[in-house]
């Protein structure tokens, strides 16, 4: 993944996940916007925020907190780790 990019990950169970790469590491949140039905993995990254492609609401990628209307509920965050084998691993409790 390039720096400042996002891609969708489909886990074996549960909702899809948006995986982000920022300059200082990898992050992951639920992919579904808490306002509408958008997939945030289709959005654009501005700084350390993801911009929803539907209504231009924003979330902080590191914390999942909403940072711009019309988004008011936080995203669930997931831990993602870059392993020595070069693969990314997602903590997935379900």
């Amino acid at each position: 993944m390039a720096v400042n990019s996002v891609r969708q990950f489909v886990p074996p169970t549960g909702p899809t996940v948006a995986v982000y790469r920022l300059a200082d590491g990898y992050f992951a949140t639920d992919d579904r916007c808490t306002h509408g039905e958008a997939e945030l993995s289709e959005g654009d990254i501005e700084g350390d925020e993801i911009v929803c492609p539907f209504h231009l609401g924003k979330f902080a990628i590191r914390t999942g907190e909403p940072t711009a209307a019309p988004c008011f509920a936080a995203l669930r965050c997931h831990r993602v780790t870059l392993a020595e084998d070069g693969n990314l691993y997602l903590d997935w409790p379900e």
Binding site: G36, F54, L56
Partner: peptide, 12 residues
């Protein structure tokens, strides 16, 4: 645009 979103009530 990836989607056409109405600015009034946000229909996409």
């Amino acid at each position: 645009r990836k989607y056409f979103t109405c600015r009034f009530h946000g229909w996409v």
